[in-house]
Amino acid sequence: MKVAIVSGASSGIGQSTAIQLARRGTGVILTYHGNQQGAVDTVAIIEKEGGTAVALPLDVGDTVAFAPFREAVAATLGDRWQRDTFDFLVNNAGFGHLAMFEDTTEDSFDTLVRVLLKGPYFLTQTLLPLLADGGAIVNTTSNSATRSGLEPGYSAYGSLKGALVVLTRYLAKELSPRGIRVNSVSPGATRTRIADNAFERFPEVIPGIAAKTALGRLGEPDDIGMVIAALLAEECRWITAEDIEVSGGYNL
């Protein structure tokens, strides 16, 4: 059985990705931070459908926690799947941030750096010895880093998601001797818990987003989760170093 690690899988895109991978026969180690019940619910959904999953706590903004997390992963792999490696890594954990350029503070910028770039950079580095040759990595970026998604208020967030796209290409190059593929997906506006459930708190913004989207609606977590799962599958074995926008044609 293939095994995947999906960070930030207690809700939204990460939760969908974990479930979609499990439905394809992949065992899942999913992480959570601040939403333990969501992680428990995700595991329950997967196990109810006959899959296997384990939830582990992880703060991707705290690099000190990465080495102990690797040890927990190694122990889980051995106990649950009788393996000492895993096959897929999905760097999904993160958070949304809206602030105009002139209002962005250094503290908020530094927090974004820790979670959105430094976190996936060094988490991947820490887990690399356990990642099997021929495996694959997918990084969740954002269309706020592309021309289609440029909207006021996301200068810091979009810049760091753009840096993650560049990191994706470098990892694809440097890990290619081991047969490891690395891609990223750039979601558009998606109905998740991002920004404290912004779409639930401000449903009036949804029609405007739908009107600017070619396919005429807000994205749903499964729209992204299914793409991530597909990128990790054998059918996409010849795809690497790509960033795929998954936005329903936003601003098309």
Rank of each mutant, 00 (worst) to 15 (best):
V3E: 04
V3A: 14
A4L: 11
S7L: 05
G8M: 13
A9N: 10
G12F: 13
S16K: 13
A18K: 09
A18C: 08
R23T: 00
I29E: 06
H33L: 05
N35S: 14
N35P: 10
Q36E: 15
Q37W: 09
G38K: 07
T42S: 14
V43T: 11
A53G: 06
V54K: 15
P57I: 00
G61A: 12
E71I: 04
V73N: 06
A75H: 07
T76D: 01
W81D: 07
F88G: 04
L89H: 05
N91Q: 10
N91I: 09
M100C: 00
F101V: 10
E102F: 01
E102R: 11
D107K: 14
F109N: 07
F109E: 00
D110Q: 15
D110F: 01
L112D: 03
V113K: 05
V113H: 10
V115G: 10
V115K: 12
L117G: 09
G119P: 14
Y121E: 05
F122K: 09
L123Y: 04
T124S: 13
T126I: 07
L128Q: 11
L131E: 08
A132C: 01
G135P: 06
I137E: 02
V138P: 00
N139Y: 05
R147A: 15
S148P: 05
G153C: 00
G153V: 06
A156V: 00
A156I: 04
G158V: 05
K161A: 06
K161P: 08
G162L: 04
A163N: 06
A163V: 03
R169E: 14
E174C: 01
I180N: 00
N183Q: 02
S184A: 15
G188D: 11
G188S: 10
G188H: 09
R193G: 02
I194S: 07
A195R: 04
D196P: 01
R201I: 04
P203G: 06
E204V: 09
P207W: 03
I209L: 13
A211E: 15
A211L: 02
A211Q: 15
K212W: 09
A214H: 11
A214F: 14
R217K: 14
R217Q: 02
G219K: 12
G219C: 11
M226F: 09
I228D: 03
A230N: 08
D243Q: 13
D243A: 12
E245Y: 03
V246L: 12
